[in-house]
Amino acid sequence: MDFSSINPALLIASLMVSATPILLAAIGEAVVEKSGVLNLGVEGMMIVGAVVGFIVAVNTDTPLLGFVCAAIISGIFSIIFGMLTQYLKSNQVATGLGLTLVGLGLSALLGRPYEGMKSPTLKALEIPFFSDIPVLGKMLFSHDLMIYFSIFLVTSVWWFLKYTHAGMVLRAVGENHDAAHALGYKVVRVRMLAIMFGGATSGLGGAYISLARVPQWTEGMTAGAGWIALAIVVFASWRPWRVLFGAYIFGGVTVLQLNLQAAGASIPVEYLSMSPYLITIVVLVIISSRGNQGAPASLGRPFHASS
């Protein structure tokens, strides 16, 4: 076994690339869950974003426009979930699963003519000066726009939840919707906005897979990334910076395993790939044994204004 052939700078750079779709989806879902809604449809919203982004990018030859449209359409797609759960009071678990099913089916139909096509991809932005720094330059400063944007998004969400009034309202709604309602906050409206935000970032994440990471369109290409995103939100105990951390650790598991294999190490693949889920369970147990600190208290519970 010879690990000297693994270049840590390159490895970290490609871990970031492979984690970004999950990071984008997870940061949105974190906001959704903070507002007290559990949307299990992340996978469906991601794949819709992947196909929409790809179609737009191929037809306009502008990957950036692909990302914008992916965010918009996935945001609109998530409204189905919002309407059903918030206005028609349907069960969130079942509705989320339905969203995933519909998203997978719809995307496969839309994407059929595009299978096997080449897409234009995002160019790496070589940040002047910084990208020339040895090691660090290659590792951190030679990425494409979306990677920087994803980190910017995490920062914004952290700032929004911590320092803004609207962020405080959102947390209040997630903690105790009846009390928030009594204080005059529009519970349903806040949640609808959160759901749409989650849809949009999931769409971005999906588009990142089809436009940057692979870049190609195939049926079902998100391959469970949405579920990992759900796991990471819990692993992070709903905190934005921990979401970033978790995504970078777990989003890169496949890449890490392939790199180890290419370097000649025979690591049992399955143990690596099950680790994010196992660790998430452990984190869940720790959170609950401390009396559910950090978890939005109203998570997954239906809200009906009774007054």
């Binding site: 897979i209 990471r213 692979v214 190609q216 391959a223 496949t254 790199n259």
Partner: peptide, 13 residues
């Protein structure tokens, strides 16, 4: 997706 990751890993090696 997996094929692309595998190719990238090999190239990085």
């Amino acid at each position: 997706a997996k094929e692309a990751d595998a190719a990238t890993a090999l190239i990085e090696q």
